[in-house]
Design a protein around this nucleic acid. Structure first.
Length: 315
DNA sequence: AATTTGCCCAACCGCAGTACG
DNA sequence: TCGTACTGCGGTTGGGCAAAT
């Protein structure tokens, strides 16, 4: 067996003992046509057989990948929307590097695409944030807001009928326009979120105690977040979602962001290394549910680093 | 203008799980 | 029950391209 690089197409051609060529590398238009036409006529499956019968000098594996990631009609091309990006962010926080599972929640997007997206854009931003961490607290609010969504998820899981957040908007601090509408969670007018005012402290020990991608919530529901279901609409009610007292806020334990260091260079998200956790006092976040059933979350204290923070959000 | 650097993304690889004879 | 082939998934690689130097 030997390998050679095709000069014209830069495809690697693999010669076996029988001198049957196995093409590798980029697919040509002709190959795409062959594969597409064959699947149109015969359907998917049995990829090795398909490759042979379609007259493709490719492995079944290669054919499958080409079909699923590129040729399949419902594959969506182009940049990810902001909603999709945020959804990826959220789902990754829940499931870690389960790309195929995440992709299932984004119709038309492939696991490969999401994986590439995460690897490039997210980690780039993470590196940026890490470099900024020493002089900004903006990321704290950001992660706090993400934790907020997790609170809501938890509440939804515990009482799914009463709490859903679809179509809601969570406005991140100050000048950030932050839409969580694609998170698949939905707010009802009956939803109220309250919390005692206090100061958040990061607790490294507790954070680290959360294993398995930290899927388990670190929230002590009884103490940190109370979610009540009211009988009257909350249209004009401003609910303080303040401080998430005693909340194992878990910047470091926020799923997926520091536990995947082995998979990618996720040091960027290992904020424990860059934050003086014990001395970190988090700003207060106010939580408001408007008449339009949208949940607005606002910071009650301004930060000078919003622009920096929202660079992250405005990927 | 030439070279370097970094980003993006398609494609490949290895492994684990599953189906099937 | 076992071995083999197939399938799917996550991780990695490398080429193309544009921006920076």
């Amino acid at each position: 067996m030997r390998l050679a690089m095709s000069a014209s197409s830069k495809s690697i051609i693999c010669y076996s003992e029988e001198d049957t060529e196995l093409r590798r590398g980029p697919w040509s238009i002709e190959e795409d046509d062959l594969l597409g036409n064959y699947i149109a006529n015969h359907g998917e499956g049995r990829w090795n057989l398909l490759a042979i019968r379609a007259g493709l000098r490719r492995t079944g594996k290669s054919c499958r990948l080409r079909w699923l990631n590129y040729l399949k009609p419902d594959v969506k091309r182009g940049n990810l929307t902001s909603e999709e990006q945020l959804l990826i962010f959220e789902l990754h926080s829940r499931w870690g590097n389960r790309w195929s599972k995440i992709a299932q929640q984004l119709p038309g997007r492939t696991d490969n695409e999401i994986k590439n997206y995460w690897r490039t854009r997210i980690q780039k931003q993470a590196r940026y944030m890490k470099s900024e961490t020493q002089r900004t607290t903006g990321f704290v609010e950001f992660f706090k807001a993400l934790q907020m969504t997790r609170c809501l998820h938890k509440a939804q899981e515990s009482s799914p009928s009463a709490m859903s957040l679809q179509d809601q908007e969570i406005h991140m601090p100050s000048n950030g326009g932050f839409h969580y509408s694609s998170f698949g969670i939905e707010a009802t007018p009956e939803t109220q979120i309250t919390s005692q005012r206090g100061v958040n402290h990061l607790n490294q020990h507790e954070q680290n105690s959360d294993s398995e991608h930290n899927n388990g919530s670190s929230i002590s529901n009884s103490e940190s977040v109370n979610i009540q279901y009211m009988t009257q609409p909350l249209g004009c009610t401003t609910n303080q979602f303040q401080a998430l007292d005693n909340y194992d806020f878990g910047i470091c334990s926020y799923d997926g962001y520091n536990i995947d260091n082995s998979a990618y260079d996720m040091d960027s998200f290992n904020l424990a290394a860059t934050v003086d956790a014990q001395n970190l006092e988090l700003p207060v976040i106010g939580c408001q549910i408007s008449e339009t059933n949208s949940l607005n979350m606002e910071s009650e204290c301004s930060t000078r680093s919003n622009d920096e923070l929202w660079q992250f959000m405005n990927i």
